[in-house]
Design a binder for these strands. Structure first.
Lengths: 222, 222
DNA sequence: ACTAAGCGGAGATCCCATCTCCACTTGATG
DNA sequence: CATCAAGTGGAGATGGGATCTCCGCTTAGT
């Protein structure tokens, strides 16, 4: 990671004078547009699409962001910080298990709302190094939440930190597949998985949203 | 579905004389090659790739299969029948719960081994109608296995037939993401989910293969 | 009012998958 | 064995779609 919103010192290229006011305004518009387009259609959209959505010419987009990578970094830095904040909030919850559930729910919601975020942080589609770095920044906070719930005897002991992103990946697969029909279906499977994660339980926790019926299931396909 | 290996009566087109021996041999070679290529690289490969892998010219491939759809049908009919057979075997298992576990494991293995099968039957990527039809043929057998385990009080009551493919979809996401590093990781999450599916349990079932460590996790990304 | 910075977007350039075409080879048949 | 319809290979035509450039025009800044 480098090249975030505020450019780091870069010895070889000229001092980079500040942008003209309108240019800076356009830059922000492009980032905002990219955020929206990535969220709904994934990071694999053309810069032309983003430019059109931002109401600027393609040339402008290419002048500001030589490649899509820079744009992706600029867009997802905020989302990553939000995820870290969620983990810290979870740790502050008085009940360790409830905090963990909160974390799964809130993080899951972020991923459910943003296809680009899933692709970049979970699926690693073309995300390469980025997801690794994001993972490194997230792991400490997430680990703390998990370990606390384990120490409280609520979370099974054989869960490891890397299970967290993989569970989110599974939930993301449900979302990707069903978002057009029922946007909440992933919560059903999260409830199921949480019942698997508890250290012990007498009876199943009721599942939300009684599954897809056969017709709905077929609608998820195209 | 139509146009499987043995072509059904098709009133409008000429009686379709039998292929010459070498042509028929090539046809089979192409199907076999497609099976392998779909399994390892997904159905979204070019006919050129398949032809090369089969050791025939592109022209030959296009002469036999006007579009990739026909080829996909020819290739996956067998896999679908295998899945149905698995469900029937599961139903024959003496213990309903063990039968269910068998079904999840055996089906999961089929999907883990064949990326094309996942794409066509689970992800519905370009699979459109095909997955719906496959679903219709699979649902009865799967439902029977689920209901039997529910009647035995072993499977929680709020599970529905459509949960089955969605759970497989989740496991498929794990496989897709981790196959290069650990091909068995999906079983870990299946165990976890099965612990969520049990009607009641005192303690967690030990999870196989102690998760990815951080290094391995990072390797799953590219 | 002047000028450097920025803009738009048509179109040049690339890349890649699909599919055709025809000179050549081969299996079937008498 | 001779004949020829059936089949073959694979170079290249076609089309589509993404990336990125270029330059005449507009605008912010002083």
């Amino acid at each position: 990671m480098s090249r975030t919103t505020t450019s780091p010192p870069d010895p070889d290229r000229p001092p980079a004078r500040p942008l003209r006011a309108d240019a800076e305004r356009n830059r922000q518009r492009i980032i905002a547009a990219a955020q929206e387009v990535f969220a709904s259609r994934g990071v694999d959209v053309t810069l032309d699409d983003i430019a059109r959505h931002a109401g600027v010419g393609v040339g402008t987009a290419y002048r500001r962001f030589a490649n899509r990578e820079e744009l992706i970094d600029a867009v997802f830095e905020g989302a990553l910080q939000h995820l870290i904040a969620l983990a810290e909030q979870a740790l502050a919850h008085e009940d360790p298990w409830e905090g963990l559930v909160q974390l799964f729910l809130a993080t899951g919601q972020d991923f459910a709302d943003d296809r680009g975020l899933r692709e970049v942080l979970l699926e690693g589609t073309q995300g390469e190094a980025r997801s690794a770095i994001a993972g490194e920044r997230l792991t400490p906070a997430v680990s703390a939440v998990l370990r606390r719930a384990q120490r409280a005897g609520q979370l099974r002991d054989d869960i490891e930190p890397t299970d967290f992103p993989l569970i989110q990946l599974m939930l993301g697969a449900v979302t990707r597949h069903s978002r057009n029909v029922t946007s909440e279906l992933w919560k059903r499977y999260l409830t199921l998985i949480l019942d698997g994660l508890r250290h012990d339980r007498d009876h199943p926790t009721p599942l939300p949203r009684p599954a897809l019926d056969q017709d709905e299931f077929e609608q998820t396909l195209p």
